[in-house]
Design a protein around this nucleic acid. Structure first.
Lengths: 335, 335
DNA sequence: GGGTACGATTGTAGCGCTACAAAATTTTGT
DNA sequence: ACAAAATTTTGTAGCGCTACAATCGTACCC
């Protein structure tokens, strides 16, 4: 069929395709960008030639000429948990639906995040999705000056760009009320310190409010480091039981921590939920698979991703109120 | 200090910086690309102006003019497990060391992978890192024609570009020998079907070879779907015990599956490793935290990432033998 | 003091593509 | 069949930046 040299090492340009297809470069351009402007027959012929030659338009040149990009960028603090995975999925699907491509960059520190944003800005992406966390001080101004649409997922008031999040406070309230309604009276609350902590700042106050309103002790609070995750079960149990041997429920910052706590309970012969109810957060796989399965808050992270994309595209005011996405209290065996 | 308008909505160009700093655009360009070519004093002044104005060079224009990019791209099948997380970390760190930026794209199907590669090619990245999996048929030719350096991580002979991997067969052999050396005689082997399976094709033959060599039964093999992960513990135990009630060891395709199997053992009152030894694969967090901690193969995925970057930069022959990275048998409590 | 190096800086000429308007072609109305 | 309208195709003129060669300073030597 094709007798063209299989490996064309001089780089192909639109002109090459135009020559091979017997049209002008402009028609080739239109075939890729505005297929409707080109007659079906022409388009098919051009695309066939392009495919045969393995031509992919140079997006940089296109961006430079057109001034607008069809790529959006996301910066993620990590992808270690399924929340972020679902979030990225949501971003990607929504981007796809709007004819955009998503590229992601991982940044573990504020400096890395700043540098990732600079790269994305350098690429002149059409929008940037950040995740709420402590940011480098110059980040906000850099983004504001660039004029690039920005959204901060899990971000509340004062987010960079516009915030998209679910109501963490209300979720915490629901979870606390659920435990109280189950007859739990001495409820321990586990907090996580460090990076991501800011996304969940509203959790503790909401817990305290509900406990106070119900006339229950709200001071059984313990802070662990994020990195301990799974392994902190023993410490959690030790600490809480030392403070109050009649502890009858545990509110954990994530399903992973909750799973660790459940394992430790089993090791000590404590029944879950018989002796102690354990609630997680985040609706991770492990919470569903565990026996007993974990009561948790499902954040619909995929929704956050989808909403983030629509915010980027609609170009809301930066100081508009955060967009709220749904969440759900998943009551399962552990409470 | 700076009385310039804080939000400059007309986009900044190199010319703007040049004017503000009283130098030519070329000097600004040099400041960013070849700092050594510019006198210290000039460079500091230019960079100061650029920072004040929030200028970030337009990488597209730079790429177009210079013909080479300082970004490399990675396409990942998913990021749900810590292997890929470590892999990406390795890519990112190594890229950083070479002054490159890493952007990643997630692709769950062959079509998505092809489309991601096209985007990366459109961006004219300096190199592309793929992960071994079934690829779209046209992918290989597309990449070959583009002339972009490609590396296929976890890829063996016949990889697209050059393969970088650890010796999965040898690791499987080590693990099997370890169990045999522990006195295990009836060893069940769990395989995973679907997408990633190809990365581990050498596992089963190596297992069989060792079992055969030791005169032991090599037919206790079960296949599960990747998606079942954690939850397949019950099925694994049921099936194997039905086939051979004297089963005394289990070789799982991942630590996650192994953890599921351990949980199921505990549920049934089987002691691990007393009654059954359980080995995982991949050295995930969960395997370390679990009690008993899991014997596993540590693939040093971060090394794979690092090596992948150096392969991209060195521009090896595409048909060179795969580059091998180390792995280690981690013997822990579960065997 | 008058070259001569040598390093720092600056024009020039595109890179490959697309917005836009103009031109060529086809379709439509009568 | 012919003009007007609609559709399709095509030049032109940059987008913002950098390779390269040319120019400008200035430190140095005899």
């Amino acid at each position: 069929m094709s007798d063209r040299p299989p490996l064309a090492h001089k780089k192909l340009t639109m002109q090459d395709i135009a020559d091979a297809a017997g049209v002008s470069p402009m028609t080739v351009s239109n075939c890729f960008r505005y297929p409707d402007r080109v007659r079906e027959k022409t388009r098919v012929a051009v695309m066939k030639v392009a495919a045969e030659l393995g031509y992919v338009p140079n997006m940089s040149a296109g961006l430079l000429a057109a001034g607008s990009s069809r790529v959006i960028g996301a910066v993620l603090p990590s992808m270690r948990n399924s929340s972020f995975y679902m979030y990225t999925s949501g971003l990607r699907r929504a981007a796809e639906d709007h004819g955009l491509k998503l590229i992601t960059m991982i940044a573990e520190t504020e400096e890395e995040e700043l540098s990732a944003v600079q790269t994305l800005l350098g690429l002149r992406v059409a929008g940037i999705a950040l995740v709420a966390a402590p940011h480098a001080p110059e980040l906000r101004q850099l983004l504001a000056r660039s004029g690039t649409p920005v959204v901060e997922s899990w971000g509340g008031e004062g987010a960079i760009g516009r915030g998209v999040s679910y109501d963490v406070g209300a979720a915490s309230r629901d979870l606390t009320r659920h435990l109280i309604a189950q007859g739990r009276r001495r409820i321990g609350f586990v907090q996580v310190s460090g990076g991501g902590g800011q996304r969940y700042a509203m959790r503790l106050p909401a817990f305290r409010r509900e406990m106070f309103a119900a006339g229950l002790p709200d001071s059984l609070v313990l802070t662990i480091r994020a990195a301990d995750g799974f392994g902190s079960g023993a410490r959690i149990l030790d600490e809480f039981l030392a403070r109050d041997a009649r502890l009858d429920a545990l509110l954990c910052p994530s399903d992973v921590v909750a799973a660790g706590a459940v394992f430790e309970c089993q090791r000590r012969g404590l029944s879950v939920p018989g002796d102690i109810a354990v609630a997680g957060w985040g609706d991770y796989d492990i919470g569903r698979q565990l026996s007993p399965s974990l009561t948790t808050i499902a954040p619909f992270s995929e929704e956050i991703g989808k909403s983030a994309v629509s915010v980027l595209l609609q170009g809301h005011e930066n100081n508009a109120a955060p967009l709220m996405t749904p969440y759900a209290l998943q009551v399962r065996e552990s409470t």
